[in-house]
Design a protein around this nucleic acid. Structure first.
Length: 869
DNA sequence: ATACATACC
DNA sequence: TACTGGTATGTAT
């Protein structure tokens, strides 16, 4: 609301520590009093000291920036201004007001769920979390300044009556599934951002809706409607709550809210008719959410995601706001909007901008020339879009997760041995999670936070992707050891440790196996030649710069801009309007252009769900099943390694053209042979060496029990420069019998894919209920088992049936009809990678409709379809 | 490639 | 007593 620029250091620091009254439900509280309490509670703590330190760093950044600003000449500014104007024109021309984007957000989600399920809580200030940290508070608690991300013990000081309820993620997930089912009715491709939040593209729904009869727009009040629930509760206090409008269950209608909802209290068993307008459609969606879950949602309607997000906050709770799709309305809306309201501008960016006296979005537009001289290209691009009220007009899922991690906070831990065993624990849990998604990564990162809250990360990238506990631990342990050694003779005094895996081998790299399986079933021989001749494959793509993470992001920003002008000429770039940033970073822009080009091939149709249903993920499942039967990680490492270099399908996961070599999964060294028998003998040898070393080292040190693996890796480092060996193209017949002996050595290398043996739940809270709701990626039915072996058998069966069907000439994969009734499926199909990490069991086998933007995936789908014809 | 910082829920 | 955990991305080196 009130964003005074930081005048003194103290006030500046407040912006970091103090209450953030940006949130809904925080209006008109005694900010000073609250801030005093917060500061008093924090002062002197290690946390506070560290925050002070970080704040000073930010202040230095600002000082540096101000110095830069002082050195800017009028001439520079003028030139920049001209460029900005050009850029603005270009962006303006790209403005697309044709989409209807909706952002939905549940009101005080976790807290509301808990209140719904516990009458006692309905009248009390409460929060979900612990004494250490709160994740949400109800609106009653917000009156005291209690909010998300505030430690419980401070919240208690603000409000001694505060009831803190421990989180119940299973429950929230279940509710989330319910609301996602409703979302899917309005946009089957909706983008969930968290359990309680999603973006939807209503454009198509609204087109259809115009032709809908009233019957389709009529929705009944649920028998367990909110009013009923409140009235039925025996506790008389609940009636009070209702009267006071404070019941977070039945939020008072906000200004933007519909007529009707409120007036129909007594209409249990009745129904409500909704109109055909956007607002009516969104109102209807919120109505259905409320009837189904007894919880309320707020929504924002706007022509792009950035604006929709801001709009959903406008009439929170239990309200909605529509920003009309005209340039004028958008610019008006933006005018006085505090920059902090924009998603992506956090407290640091806000502070930096405030230092330049930029507090409102309109200031951004006015100061663009200055900003372009002080901030990075990416940041400027973003600022400029914000200042024009532009944002993404197409919602698309991020196709693949980029990292997976686990971290834990604990009381001071200084003993090295304990640190190592904790590290192993983390690696074990991470490996389990990786296994569930069939992931293998090349980069292992260790995160350490000491008792002074100082954070350190250390990373190492391996030659080939790993996934097993031992493999991860071998690296993490080393990283940890280095840090311990660096600190010695003092111990590391840790309060947090985390392990992260990244640089995953693309899931597409697993495709060749599946292809060859299908090919085998079809023709009785390798499918490689047919696949190689597949016309949809364009060999020139292989040499294009692939979408590195950074390039991909940059691409999104650039997309509107490039696309809107001359979509058919993106390759050429270099139009005058681009020159502004191009001059600054010509090289980077070129990357953008090619990446736009690459992406556009696969994106459009697929993102809207036109792609053949799940051919790609079916393949993943096939591969998993096959691996599950035939071998452990050895063969899977091989598959990945073999697949990547084949080059027939450029990998989007790596920018580098991967060499065609065979790499031993045990010692990670390159093996100079194309003969797989030779290669397998090498692996056997390595495994023997490994197990011998293991025995030896076990007596040497507790933490070196898997020293062998590490030794192998070090060996590999020395061998790194050994000559690369050309590999067979993927899909050659060997690939289906790669490493036939892998299984025999399962003792030293863990079976990678979905063994049930270690499915015991971990203590980590994110694992709650992780084994429920396994959904078969083939038939889409929820399997009522927690046993992954059982589940795997089911998937295998399904896959066999499916392949047989397809061979009979059914080119489209028809869903099992009974699937439709299974509510869990929609939700689980729609899980984005982020959520997938939280509901990991659901993601196994990557359900079919998860779109993959990659052109090569599409190519692959076509390939298989062709095959079967 | 690595380290660190920022941001979001 | 007590200030999270998971993921993505930007920036600097």
């Amino acid at each position: 609301m009130d964003n005074e620029p930081a005048q003194t250091k103290d006030e500046g620091f407040l912006s970091r520590m103090a209450l953030n009254d940006n949130k809904a439900g925080m209006e008109g509280l005694d900010r000073d009093k609250i801030n005093n309490i917060i500061m008093e509670s924090s002062k002197g703590s290690k946390f506070y000291e560290n925050e002070l330190k970080k704040d000073q760093q930010v202040n230095q950044r600002i000082e540096k920036m101000m110095l830069q600003k002082a050195n800017i000449t009028q001439a520079q500014l003028k030139k920049a201004q001209a460029q900005v104007e050009k850029m603005t024109l270009a962006l303006e021309r790209s403005r697309d007001l044709s989409r209807v984007i909706v952002h939905v957000d549940m009101d005080a989600f976790y807290a509301a769920v808990e209140m719904r399920d516990c009458a006692e809580l309905k009248t009390k200030p409460m929060a979900v979390g612990s004494m250490s940290m709160l994740s949400t508070s109800n609106y009653l608690a917000r009156k005291y300044g209690v909010r998300a991300a505030m430690p419980g013990f401070i919240a208690k000081k603000l409000c001694s009556d505060l009831v803190i309820v421990p989180p119940n993620f299973d429950k929230y997930r279940a509710v989330s599934d319910e609301i996602r089912e409703i979302f899917a009715d309005y946009d089957p491709h909706f983008l969930p951002m968290s359990l309680d939040e999603a973006y939807l593209d209503f454009t198509e729904h609204l087109e259809q809706r115009q032709t809908w009869p009233e019957s389709l727009r009529t929705h009944r009040y649920s028998s367990k409607s909110i009013t009923t629930a409140v009235e039925e509760t025996p506790n008389p206090k609940d009636t009070e709550a209702k009267d006071e409008d404070l019941s977070p269950i039945l939020f008072k209608e906000s200004p933007g809210s519909p007529p009707g909802l409120d007036g129909s209290k007594g209409a249990n068993g009745g129904s409500e008719l909704f109109g055909t307008s956007v607002e009516e459609a969104v109102r209807e969606m919120r109505f259905r959410i409320e009837q189904k879950t007894m919880l309320t949602a707020s929504a924002g309607i706007a022509p792009n995601m950035m604006l929709a997000k801001v709009c959903s906050d406008k009439n929170k709770p239990n309200g909605q706001y529509r920003l009309p799709p005209t340039r004028e309305a958008v610019m008006d809306f933006i005018q006085d909007l505090p920059v902090r309201k924009i998603c992506g501008i956090g407290k640091v960016s806000e502070k930096m901008l405030n230092a330049l006296e930029i507090t409102k979005c309109s200031h951004l537009g006015q100061q663009m020339a200055l900003l372009s001289l002080l901030f990075s290209e990416t940041a400027c691009q973003n600022f400029m879009e914000v200042s024009l009220g532009l944002g993404s007009t197409r919602i698309s899922r991020h196709e693949e997760r980029k990292s997976m991690s686990i971290e834990r906070t604990f009381k001071e831990l200084s003993d090295a041995e304990e640190q190592f065993s904790l590290c192993r624990e983390l690696c074990k849990d991470l490996a389990e999670d990786m296994k569930k998604e069939g992931l293998k990564g090349k980069t292992v990162s260790l995160k350490l936070k000491n008792v002074n809250f100082e954070v350190k990360t250390r990373a190492q990238t391996l030659q080939c992707a790993v996934a097993a506990e031992e493999e991860i631990f071998a690296v993490a342990k080393d990283l940890l050891k280095t840090e311990i050694d660096n600190e010695s003779p003092h111990p590391l005094k840790l309060r947090l440790m985390g392990v992260r895996m990244s640089a995953f081998v693309s899931s597409d790299d697993k495709a060749p196996t599946q292809k060859s399986i299908l090919g085998f079933l079809k023709s009785g021989s390798s499918g490689s030649s047919e696949i190689k001749g597949e016309p949809s494959y364009n060999p020139s793509q292989a040499s294009q710069p692939m979408a590195c993470p950074s390039v991909q992001t940059a691409k999104r920003k650039e997309e509107v801009f490039l696309h809107s002008r001359k979509p058919e000429e993106t390759r050429n770039g270099g139009e005058p309007q681009q020159s502004f940033f191009q001059r600054a970073q010509a090289k980077r822009l070129q990357l953008h252009v090619s990446s736009v080009n690459t992406q556009d091939e696969g994106c459009g149709a697929e993102a809207r769900g036109i792609s053949p249903i799940g051919a790609c993920s079916k393949e993943s499942a096939l591969s998993s099943a096959a691996l599950n039967k035939t071998g452990g990680s050895v063969s899977q490492v091989l598959e990945n390694k073999r697949a990547a270099p084949a080059g027939d399908h450029p990998s989007t996961s790596g920018c580098e053209a991967r060499p065609q070599i065979l790499i031993c999964p045990v010692c990670s060294s390159k093996v100079e042979t194309t003969d797989l028998n030779v290669f397998n003998r090498h692996i056997d040898l390595c495994l023997n060496v490994a197990s011998t070393n293991q025995k030896k080292s076990e007596s040497e040190s507790v933490y070196d029990e898997k020293k062998c693996l590490q030794e192998c890796k070090e060996l590999n480092k020395r061998k790194e420069r050994s000559e690369a060996e050309e590999e067979q193209p993927f899909g050659s017949k060997e690939s289906s019998r790669v490493c036939p002996r892998g299984g025999q050595h399962g003792g030293s290398i863990q079976k990678v894919f979905l063994t049930q043996s270690d499915s015991k739940p971990t203590t980590s809270q994110k694992c709650q209920g992780k084994l429920s709701d396994l959904v078969c990626p083939v038939c889409h039915l929820t399997q009522e088992t927690d046993d992954l072996a059982v589940f795997n058998r089911h998937v295998d069966l399904c896959l066999n049936q499916e392949v047989l069907h397809e061979l009979k000439g059914q080119t489209t994969f028809s869903q099992n009809p009974s699937v439709v009734k299974n509510s869990k499926n929609i939700a689980s199909r729609n899980l984005p990678p982020k959520q997938a990490g939280k509901v990991k069991s659901k993601r196994r086998g990557s359900p079919s409709s998860l779109p993959s933007k990659k052109s090569r995936s599409l190519g692959l789908c076509n390939t298989i379809d062709k095959f079967l014809r």
